[in-house]
Nucleic acid binder design. Sequence first.
DNA 1: ACCATGACTAGAA
DNA 2: CTTCTAGCCATGG
Length: 129
Amino acid sequence: MPPLKKTSAKLKSVKPSGKKDENFFELVYEVVRQIPKGRVTSYGAIAACLGTKLSARMVGWAMNGAGRVRPKVPAHRVVNRNGILSGKHHFNPPGTMEKLLKKEGVKVKNDIVVNFKERFWDPVKELGF
DNA sequence: ACCATGACTAGAA
DNA sequence: CTTCTAGCCATGG
């Protein structure tokens, strides 16, 4: 898991549907799985960890397929840079995200992570990038 | 093939 | 301080 080799910034041909070309996706999932319980991170941080910090959107898109990946991917620990649960509506019943976070000890107020800055887990720093 | 949209972000106004 | 703009890149009409 730490191997996280830098994928080329290009990261071409990534099909979330049924395809196995997931270089970017798999990497994203890998990082997300490393997020300690009770911590959260941002799309940009993950993107930066992969070297594509300008493409945070792709990280979010990758999360779109998080639900269909084998080991579970704690996508609920990934929020935007403001600590807002921007993707709560993409969960099965909306509210699952918040519920899971609270269950892990992360307080959520009005769809926003409380003390986000302290809860923030930087993959680049923690994984040594 | 072109245009619009999106689980984003950083920087400018 | 808040709001707007421009990049990012895959997907769908």
